[in-house]
Design a protein around this nucleic acid. Sequence first.
DNA 1: TTCAATTTGTTCGTATGTATC
DNA 2: GGATACATACGAACAAATTGA
Lengths: 355, 355
Amino acid sequence: MVNSKHELIVNHIKKAINAGKYEVDTKIPSENQLAAKYGVSRQTVRKAILELEQEGYLYAKHGSGTFVARRRTKSGNSKNIAVVSTYMSDYIFPRVIQGINQVLSDNGYSILLKTTNNSRKGEAWCMEELLSKNIDGMIIEPSQSAISCQHQVLYDQMDAMGIPYVFIQGCYEAMLDRPHVMLDDVWGGKMITKHLIDLGHQEIAGIFKADDTQGILRHKGYVMALQEAGISYNPDLVIWYHTKDKGVKPMEGLLRIYEAGTACQAVVCYNDEIAAEVIKGLNSIGKRVPEDISVTGFDNSLLAHSKGITTIAHPQEELGKRAAQTLIGLINGSILKKDAHVLLAPELVERKSTM
Amino acid sequence: MVNSKHELIVNHIKKAINAGKYEVDTKIPSENQLAAKYGVSRQTVRKAILELEQEGYLYAKHGSGTFVARRRTKSGNSKNIAVVSTYMSDYIFPRVIQGINQVLSDNGYSILLKTTNNSRKGEAWCMEELLSKNIDGMIIEPSQSAISCQHQVLYDQMDAMGIPYVFIQGCYEAMLDRPHVMLDDVWGGKMITKHLIDLGHQEIAGIFKADDTQGILRHKGYVMALQEAGISYNPDLVIWYHTKDKGVKPMEGLLRIYEAGTACQAVVCYNDEIAAEVIKGLNSIGKRVPEDISVTGFDNSLLAHSKGITTIAHPQEELGKRAAQTLIGLINGSILKKDAHVLLAPELVERKSTM
DNA sequence: TTCAATTTGTTCGTATGTATC
DNA sequence: GGATACATACGAACAAATTGA
């Protein structure tokens, strides 16, 4: 019964896509070309494309072209996006979510807020509830604990339902192929080490956490900075510790370095907490910071602020913005899941623990 | 936010419908009439109408006209509750929302987060969007609470739809009969003034904001404390200022008091910001705080913390919890709307600006 | 029944703005 | 900067449905 020109074009293109004549994410002919092909006006083509866009067959990119979208089985466009955080009290939380909110609300989305209290159980419970709700996507800060089978199932389920998600702050090691937006720890480690080198230091010790991806990455950056400066890597200057050794081993290691008589004018610490402990320990053995030895932290926490520790800062608002942008890209199909891996440039915050 | 012509028309018509200017199933003006009214082309009007049709606000009848659709009354168990805040960056925001989240999630609710950027427009925009969503209730921090509420219609609409809401932090003066949970400003003003009296001060100046409900209430508490202590109220010691005078008038007034030779050993300030300015001003004329004169703030902001100002604290988490509890009571009917008026007890935070 | 006026639906043409490469 | 392509807007014409005289 309905046989308007644009309906005919809609059906024709739909059939072509379903028949696989156009690959996913390939560009279809421009509006003008299609207009010429079907012998109609550009407006008619536009109307057809608009309809196909709303049905999820295509997505248009301003100034670039119109592309074939991944077909979504079913999705209400609830315009709701879940944001799952560990704690709300976290000092970084407000700024990150502010960035998320800015981008999402500009794009007509609302935020559905959830907290896990940093427990696996909380995270699983959250996600189960979210699966029963109508959401278009999810931004999640993973809970600290390692991933369990139960979890993987929940994420697979979201994949199956075609609900995209983006990890922020961190990412389970087993899921690094999934979309994530986080601080570039390698770059951060390199940046803060380079800062010490630029200050004229040559013998730079490093204290890193061994059972943590971030620890490995920050160490990697530390090594890179030394290499670039032409300083040979000295394993004796690197102290590795595990979560359970925290508060004991780092300072022990540093004392051993001093006892061995190894020269050392600076220490790169895994995070601000360790840096604060190290400074306290150094003071207790009569070393002055930064006159005798420079110490750096990582994370730009309140501790670093109050103790005046030179550290690496998260660009918090930027992180939120990028995560939201990435998620929107995943939803409308303009970003592929495998490309949605964003590492953010860290910022050096210079304070009085280095000179 | 996009500001195309058709979007403007969409919003205008939406607002008119929400305000009840068009009855259900009545015909709206024809496309040509609307085009003339808005001074745009018929195509633009059509685009706007098409959008409204898709959102379910209107339905068009070929050859007959366009009509207002019967707004689908949402069934009320989405288990979603909207939380509308002014800014996310606010230092109090995380703790308040933490309290809200605790209670709501314990009761199986999720939070739908929105921000208004403290603008009336933002608030109206938020609420219009929320009206189209399926929410069970709303907790809202009003924007610029002193000015009278121009979009009462939106709240009436929520009443009509049976969606309960609770104001937090402040409340429009015209809507004080609606449910609200806020700090007891009178009590706070009284408490901090009494603190100065207890310290032995008799001549206590007061600086208050005149165009703000909170300013009036805090002044009221100030007067009560003086009365109870048997100290006569001296109008010469009270300085009123308006938002636009901020940063000039408060200190001017204080200088005038000194020039007049009036005795004054303490100043109650409207908030921490004013207190910080006053302290700075006093120092610049050679007065020491608190040795020569005691100064108090209000709000327990970061400023009060860093400058060591004695102040009145919001019980932030408690505020959030009580608001959530009140809302849940309204939803399940265990609390009546007219009884949902909670004033929270303030807390005195003693620091080094008083003695 | 017929006809004219009104109103929405569809199509074509054109122009300008703006993002991307 | 220029070419390309999408986004928004305006104007015009005609078709199809409805309404009422």
